[in-house]
Amino acid sequence: MRHCLVYIAIAIVFLLLQGTFLPLMLTPQWRPNIILILVLILGVREKPLPAMMTVLLIGALQDSLGGTTVGLHISVCLAVFILTRLTAERLNVESPALLVLMLIGANLTYGLLVAFIMTTFAEMGTILYLLVTALPQQTLSTLFVFFVLMVLLPGWLLSGTTQTDKNGRLYRGEQS
């Protein structure tokens, strides 16, 4: 519970950064999706149920501060979280390189899911143009933020990454 509150607090700080500070320096295409890093970390190192609830809350926060309709980011964050969870169970997520690859994948998945949901449910074809032009830059800037966080907070991002077995129990490294 305490972990979840910490994640929520960090998410609020990240969202405030994305909504106030970053727009002063970066064009929309180059703004990183810092929240995605949180979703990824939640997916690879926290217990499934509390992590999922936290992701839902983070998605709701993002919906409150961005976009036009509540539910879009909740759905997308949750989908990315589930995919991360499924992938993390089969991979050695303690490897920083793998985390980077997962982040790239998560970023692309996030964008594609937003495009899919918006074109399917809201019939907004023009979102595709925006996404296609913004996704590569956004992936790069998100990676940059991830590297900065890796340098500043290596303990938080790398060590202590855990996985869960089929019963939802957490284990570290190889499962015996």
Binding site: G19, G66, V114, L131, A134
Partner: peptide, 14 residues
């Protein structure tokens, strides 16, 4: 204007 959208594909301001 006190804020912008937190996502790069939406265009809203606060």
């Amino acid at each position: 204007v006190i804020g912008e959208d937190v996502t790069p594909w939406s265009r809203t301001i606060v």
